[in-house]
Amino acid sequence: MRIDAIDVGLKIAGAIVRPLVYLTLCLPAAIVVVTSFTAGESLRFPPEGFSLRWYQAAINSEPFMDSLWASTKLAFIATILSLAIGLASSFAIDRFRFRGREAFRTLTLSPLVVPMVVLGLGLLQFLSWMQLNQTFAGLLIGHVLITLPYVVRTLTASLVLFDRTLEQAAMNLRAPPWRILWRITLPLIGPALVSASVFAFVTSFGNITLSIFLGFAGETTLPVQIFTYVEHSYDPILAAVSTIVILVTLIVIAIVEKLVGMETVA
């Protein structure tokens, strides 16, 4: 009887909380998207009228387009590097029992635990000591660092589930190690590689704290550009830029979904 009461109670609570959670998750984005179509002069909800003028403004704005490109480039290169380093680390963690293996695993995951501000400050000092501050390389190192935990997490999880007899079977069929990696292991952990890249890309693309610390005059990332823009003006161009970013992200996710989905079906 009492168990039933608890069950019913939880069910009702769930029915109320669930829509609230979805609403809180979606509403901010929805408001930004809706606002971006305003015909008025200020960033306000509900929008006044409908126009595409702020999209035109956004596309014609050199700072925004430059920073969009800078962010994309940075996130892309950071993802590639992070995948390469992360894949090697995950293999080492999964396949070998070496001294300090646990410490190594913790180390690769630690950027998640250290507050971003602390990490930024530390990197700033470290990079200037290395004579790398205010450079693209410095910014890239920072971004690789913060994307690495996601890559290592995803790939080690996938490698643990990987059936190593398949590699032995390939070896028995005269495949040398590099060929096994290329033809057997990588294709089979492909879905994990894709989701690791998505995590890494999105993390790098959206990061602001580290980019502020390590940023330099030559190239500003989009989040930093938006952040600094908000400090002095507050017009709907921000909503338009944000909507473009949301759209691009959705397209990327859709493509990935399709790719990974096909991988699982095939």
């Binding site: 059936d163 007899t165 398949l166 079977a169 028995n172 005269r174 057997i184 294709p187 089979l188």
Partner: peptide, 17 residues
């Protein structure tokens, strides 16, 4: 991969992809 053997594994280990 340099030995002239052909093995059938207990789980068969066919490549799923």
């Amino acid at each position: 991969y340099r030995r002239d053997t052909g093995m059938v594994f207990q789980s068969y280990a066919l490549f799923p992809h």
